[in-house]
Nucleic acid binder design. Structure first.
Lengths: 223, 223
DNA sequence: TCTATGGTTTTTATAGATAAAATTGATATT
DNA sequence: AATATCAATTTTATCTATAAAAACCATAGA
């Protein structure tokens, strides 16, 4: 459905992208008719897309005010990362506890290699995509389908903050190195070490983002 | 919004309830017009409600076939419970690690007391409600708002299976006892013990449900 | 000046209409 | 009997229309 060509899907994808890329910043309100005109379709599919975004926890629909992009606070980020830690932790544990699949290992290596390359080239958007793919693959390869939907939802909810961090501070310089290390633990079947290591990575990432949010938009979070 | 009186909310609540109570069993397909006639409203709000249920992971919308209630398999249940274990585990850890709030402790005790009472009276639906409230409160009192939304979503997704188990086997006889025990660990601040104990409870519950699903609907899961 | 009142405007929530896509079933052909 | 074709039917995806709710604004009265 996300790749469908229906107007609902198009509206959903475009609005979501605009929100995640902070072109529609926190607090922005968009009337149904405005978006419909912009997207060159009627209000019905736009409205349906907005309802879906509300379910995603990205916007809120208020009577007479269309949708309003939800603010994202330091508190939200630390909460979300706290959950991501245990969710991804579960995935890593499951993955490390079973013999590694060659194809899957290759996919993970490819992602980290791409992170390395894009870091050299300074291509932030490729780096971000590779980073996401790595973590998404870990969850996917864990074999728990429901885990994937939970993970993706949390990832999306924190995406805006990561994008802000990326713009403000660039990609974390030692991220590829750290991912190689995590992958090594997984391949060696060292579940406990892998989980522990990921824990520290997540905590570090959360701290960075929180600091950044505080700097960039401290106080100016719309309520 | 769930308590709103708009037609969308009404349609959402009624359809969801029918699905969770297995009155609309797995595999059932409902055309937009059918549901609209049934609910005495136009197709528009019904369609919007169906889209929301699709986001909840309860139904799937297919071109020309309206919505179709998703099947739930043994695999789904063990996957969902695996995630619930770490999600609720996080909540319990956070809760046990901070000094217990009197009001919150009382709320938790009230739920377990109600579980005790309803077990004596054989009132299954009250028992189920109290059980849900207990676990929901634990997550709520953990102080992580996002954890609550994740938890509720997973709980809903597994609700149909729990309802089937409840009808088939009644309420677990020693459940209240076990909840008292868990609560005791939490109040004493024994985080590790509490998490460990909950882990065993969840595993036990998952196993029961899986066995039951296998018995009740083994093989007949519509694809 | 401040507050209350009522009419105006805006925006949605829902209904109803329509064209297009998909399915079905019947008929004709091999 | 099997298959291909085409018309009829069903159902949706989307658009447009409308009534009701809410917000706004100006004006009158204190």
């Amino acid at each position: 459905m996300p790749s469908s060509t229906s107007n609902v899907s198009i509206a959903y994808r475009k609005l979501k992208q605009a929100i995640l890329e902070n072109r529609l910043g926190p607090g922005t309100q968009v009337l149904e008719q405005e978006a419909a005109t912009q997207l060159e379709m009627s209000r019905t599919p736009v409205r349906e897309a907005m309802l879906m975004l509300q379910k995603d926890g990205l916007v809120e629909m208020r009577p007479r005010q269309g949708m309003r992009v939800l603010p994202i606070t330091v508190g939200d980020i630390s909460e979300i990362y706290e959950i991501l830690e245990v969710v991804e932790g579960l995935a890593i544990r499951k993955l490390a506890e079973k013999p590694i699949n060659e194809k899957e290992a290759r996919a993970l290596e490819d992602s980290v290699t791409l992170m390395d390359l894009s870091l050299e080239r300074g291509d932030l958007s490729v780096w971000a995509a590779a980073d996401k793919k790595f973590h998404e693959d870990i969850v996917k390869f864990s074999g728990n389908v429901h885990l994937e939907t939970v993970f993706l939802q949390l990832w999306d909810r924190s995406q805006r903050a990561r994008n802000m961090l990326l713009k403000a501070h660039g990609a974390p310089v030692n991220s590829a190195q750290e991912h190689w290390e995590l992958l090594k633990f997984i391949k060696e079947g060292k579940a406990a070490e892998a989980v522990e290591f990921q824990k520290s990575l997540r905590a570090e990432a959360a701290e960075q983002i929180c600091k950044m949010i505080f700097d960039v938009m401290g106080g100016m979070v719309p309520s």
